[in-house]
């Protein structure tokens, strides 16, 4: 009887192995859908947030991300791969979970962060590891020609959430923007303004709605130059 069971298992496995490339990123409703609630509670995120994170396991699991985000979490300004080192763990968790669920479109990254590669608990482990890495000393900055206006715009419209020094707010899931790559800040700000980042915060969309491309370039340049001495707790 036991013999039959084991053999049946082997046969089913053999049959199930016929080709199938990994499933594409799913698509879940986002800001374009009526009734959208930013950061709505969901199971995957609750498991990750409740998990007692293990940064050393996070370092090991992070291996599948290094090919794009780099071993030190510095990302690549030229490739619009964001810097992850020093970002708040809560923010990292929310963004990874949103990509898995298809609330934030990122088909390039999805196969590497999908739940058959990284478990909900490992999402938290990776986030704990990255959040305690030092912010890399160099990043891509803008042209530096419009910083006074950039600062004025930032203090008027953005500092209320992202903090006077761009430090963000871990408890509120507001990202740290200080010292992020200019290319990425510029790219995301435009996406959020234009509705392309579907997991965006509607209050932020209001704040940036009237911005021209030049305004966004100026404020992004300013944010890329903010630097906070110590990484977040």
């Amino acid at each position: 009887m036991i013999i039959r069971l084991v053999c049946l298992g082997a046969l089913v496995l053999a049959a199930g192995s016929a080709s199938a490339s990994p499933p594409a990123q799913p698509r879940a409703p986002g800001i374009e859908s009526p009734g959208y609630v930013w950061n709505a509670p969901n199971e995957d995120q609750m498991i990750a947030l409740a998990h007692r994170a293990d940064p050393s396991n996070g370092e090991e699991v992070y291996a599948v991300c290094r090919g794009c985000h780099q071993a030190d979490g510095s990302g690549r300004g030229d490739a619009i791969y964001p810097q992850l080192a020093g970002q708040h763990a809560s923010v990292l968790i929310k963004q990874m979970i949103d990509v898995r669920a298809g609330r934030r479109d990122n088909p390039k990254m999805h196969p590497f962060v999908a739940d058959w590669v990284v478990s909900s608990e490992e999402v938290a482990d990776i986030a704990a590891y990255l959040s305690q890495l030092p912010i890399p000393p160099t990043n891509l900055k803008g042209e530096g020609t419009d910083l006074t206006r950039g600062q004025a715009l930032y203090e008027k419209d953005c500092a209320i959430c992202h903090g006077a020094q761009g430090e963000g707010d871990a408890a509120e899931f507001y990202p740290r923007v200080a010292h992020q790559h200019y290319s990425y800040l510029d790219h995301e700000s435009k996406l959020i303004r234009d509705g392309g980042r579907r997991n965006a915060n509607p209050e932020m969309v209001k704040a940036i709605k009237g911005y021209s491309d030049a305004d966004i370039a100026a404020v992004s340049d300013y944010m890329s130059r903010l630097s906070t001495e110590s990484p977040p707790e």
Partner: peptide, 25 residues
């Protein structure tokens, strides 16, 4: 370096800078 345009991660990220591999790769 991979190829950011087509979303190819650097092979070195998983297989090591010199292709030495790890317990996982």
């Amino acid at each position: 370096d991979g190829n950011p345009g087509s979303g190819i991660p650097a092979c070195s990220g998983c297989h090591g800078d010199e292709g030495e591999g790890t317990r996982r790769f």
